[in-house]
């Protein structure tokens, strides 16, 4: 039997398709991005080796807004961690206590998650529309006409206006992760808290939260990495504008690669995005020790 299970030919045969595709479309392209990033190249002419010049240009005396794009992604990440996740946690801890309509709310809160971000972006584009948008319509209806504006056309309001749909879409996703984790906890600890006279709020903060640390960590990683990779909603809503107010690393990268045809420089952006993803998830894992 051991001989059958270590049949080399069979192992290679079973592994080959997955390995070949993984190698061709993940490992090789990522490494090639690294190679391009050390060169100056427009895709047509000759490729000149420039060392780390592209990387230096990204951070020192940067003129195309890469540093502010990283900053915007950071703001999106902060909003996700400190607005979206607390909302998700509130709903998860309420729903895990068997309230009326539990199944209904779980189903409804997850609907935006399954809709394409492209659709979500188009929908919110219409909500924030300056002339006929839902938001201005509702503001006018309650007498706050002076607050109405073209939300996405003003640099001050554009970034919050693209963050809202991002939060709106994924609250349900994080909620479900946390809800599943809370449901998996033993009911004894809640019983003990109840006997000790803890309020619901105290129970949520002191009992539930520390006990679902592993899943909170997953949520924080997803929220931060997701913000760093956010593309669809921002590209569809503002293309990074107005005047770069909502530019994030991915939108800038696509522009640099496919509009400006600066393949080396754009690849350096890609490499920084991968590095930031790896580094941040490592950091969060370090920061959130889970036994």
């Amino acid at each position: 039997m051991n001989k059958l299970l270590s049949n080399k030919k069979a192992i290679v045969l079973f592994l080959f398709p997955a390995f070949a595709i993984f190698l061709t479309f993940i490992i090789v392209p990522s490494s090639v991005s690294l190679y391009y990033s050390l060169h100056d190249w427009n895709g047509v002419g000759a490729m000149t080796f420039v060392g780390i010049k592209n990387y230096v240009r990204l951070f020192v005396n940067n003129t195309d807004g890469f540093t502010s794009a990283v900053w915007h992604a950071g703001l999106i990440a902060l909003a996700s961690v400190f607005i979206q996740l607390p909302l998700s946690f509130c709903f998860a801890s309420i729903l895990a206590r068997r309230v009326r309509g539990e199944r209904f709310y779980l189903t409804v809160f997850f609907i935006p998650v399954i809709i394409s971000s492209t659709v979500v972006a188009q929908l919110w584009l219409k909500i924030f529309n300056g002339s006929y948008g839902l938001l201005n319509y509702l503001l006018t209806a309650v007498g706050l006409e002076k607050w109405t504006r073209a939300w996405l056309a003003k640099p001050q309001t554009a970034l919050p206006a693209v963050i809202i749909p991002i939060i709106w879409q994924y609250v349900g996703y994080h909620m479900l992760l946390m809800y599943t984790a809370i449901k998996g906890l033993s009911s004894d600890i809640f019983e003990a808290a109840r006997i000790d006279g803890a309020t619901n709020f105290q129970t949520a903060i002191r009992i539930t939260l520390p006990n679902i640390r592993p899943i909170i960590r997953v949520c924080v990683i997803f929220a931060v990495i997701g913000s760093l990779k956010s593309y669809d909603i921002i590209f569809m809503m503002t293309k990074g504008g107005p005047i770069g107010a909502t530019e994030v690393p991915t939108t800038l990268m696509v522009e640099t690669l496919f509009t400006a045809q600066r393949y080396g420089y754009g690849s350096a952006m890609a490499v920084i995005i991968i590095l930031l993803c790896f580094l941040l998830s490592l950091l969060i894992k370090k920061f959130f020790k889970v036994e």
Binding site: F22, T24, F25, I26, I27, V28, P29, S30, V32, S33, Y36, G43, I225, L228, K229, Y231, T250, M253, V254, L257, Y263, G266, S267, A270, V271, I273, I274, C277, F278, S281
Partner: peptide, 17 residues
């Protein structure tokens, strides 16, 4: 490890290949 690699990282090389 492949789970962490973002799609964006592979875009240009995939396009050229």
């Amino acid at each position: 490890l492949g789970i962490t690699v973002p799609l964006h990282a592979a875009l240009l090389p995939t396009f050229l290949m």
